[in-house]
Design a protein around this nucleic acid. Sequence first.
DNA 1: CTAAAATCAATCAAAAACATTCATTTCTTG
DNA 2: CAAGAAATGAATGTTTTTGATTGATTTTAG
Lengths: 251, 251
Amino acid sequence: MKATERRLKIQDLFSAEEFIDADKLCRKLRASDSTVRRDLIALEKKGLLKRVHGGAVSLQAREEPLDSQWLSNRFHQEKQHIGKTVAELVEEGQTLILDGGSTVAEVARHLQGRSLQIITNSILIAQIFYDSKSTEVTLTGGFLYPRLGVLLGPLCEQMLDHVAADILIMGIGGITEAGLSNSNTLIVGSERKMIEVSRRVIVAADHSKFGRNAMVHLSSLDTVDLVVSDLALAPPYRQLLERHEVEVVLA
Amino acid sequence: MKATERRLKIQDLFSAEEFIDADKLCRKLRASDSTVRRDLIALEKKGLLKRVHGGAVSLQAREEPLDSQWLSNRFHQEKQHIGKTVAELVEEGQTLILDGGSTVAEVARHLQGRSLQIITNSILIAQIFYDSKSTEVTLTGGFLYPRLGVLLGPLCEQMLDHVAADILIMGIGGITEAGLSNSNTLIVGSERKMIEVSRRVIVAADHSKFGRNAMVHLSSLDTVDLVVSDLALAPPYRQLLERHEVEVVLA
DNA sequence: CTAAAATCAATCAAAAACATTCATTTCTTG
DNA sequence: CAAGAAATGAATGTTTTTGATTGATTTTAG
């Protein structure tokens, strides 16, 4: 097995477990412990995982409870602005797909009471419309991914196959020149389907997501129609997006 | 098992239980007491838990989803007892369908941390298992019915067509000689499907549901295998159930 | 209150995992 | 095809982790 193939496989394994045993990797990849260790070092250098004694842990896997409040509120101000701006782009009566993630949740909050049809795979976002009569909410089914509160897997993708949406509003793990990426293959799988069935793709991402790579590649920048970020976005990134014909709005 | 893996697992266990015995941890993690103690010391240093004689307690106040609703709930005490009793009937590794409703939610709370496969159409129940890794939760898709937080409609029923469950745990609007009834046709529709695909049907209903008829007839009493209610259940109802070969347990 | 039982902290040797080096194989590239 | 570069796996010594043992401390029962 080649190095690239091995490393992709390692990344895949993180969608199921947040910790991976080095021994198990050796057996699964049929490689020596030296090789596996080198792979892990390489992936760590790329910022895709954290190496620990005995294996490696997924980076986004678990926030420390002490700053969990803080972390989910990181750039909260910015996310609020982004949420408001994105919500203003939506017209009455449209069909939206809302992906999971705290930035998109902020968009959802600004959509409360609007007359829309919303499809989402996030139970947190569904909750925002808990007692709204004007907004019709449909949840995709699926396996509930612990801690993120999103529905994933074949059931989710199968359901998305049967719908069509005007706009997809998507959160994201990282954006670089290579495109969008997110933290695990299951999430990326359903997001790909979402892109597929949506006429217009809007990415809501605060400036901290730029220049970062998450574990799994999702798509190239060309699939995106519009990126809404905050004012702290470094100009080079803005130019990068515009080179790919992506519209940019800073909130 | 490696150190990091063990410590993540300990954190998981604390999302289901407030206090955990050191012995129990040794057995569950297959590690010596020295190792477990070192793990607990490490986690305490990170501020994730508090070590006490004989084990450790969770530091984060376990927030119950929708506290306010539950507190204002009628017959809350009775529902708690019913919940505990029903939860004890469930065996490890089984596949359950949980329908919506406050009584069933009480059952779900007592199932936290168990190793089960749960299918539900209630986002409130899904939330109860928000960060439990041992309990695998699948949501049916569907329209979100406002204020009840349940998923209904063709999407939901279609999904239920593809599953099979050991036990269905069902709340109910009313029980009379004529059978079970509930408040609207959409709910009844999905509940019929649930009954269809489950080997054993358990109804969790406090005594106030007896002798009442809700809007829509759901099924006759013969489809029910077991009813769990509280001690205030009037004897005539008990006899009625037994005439229909329904087992009765009072909590 | 006292004694027995349980739990804890400290220490140590064995085991597991690690970094480093080096010879061998595989892959590039001219 | 051949020289060089990159990747691999084995071997080395080092560091970390682990479970057992010891005696101290706390809890429980009488």
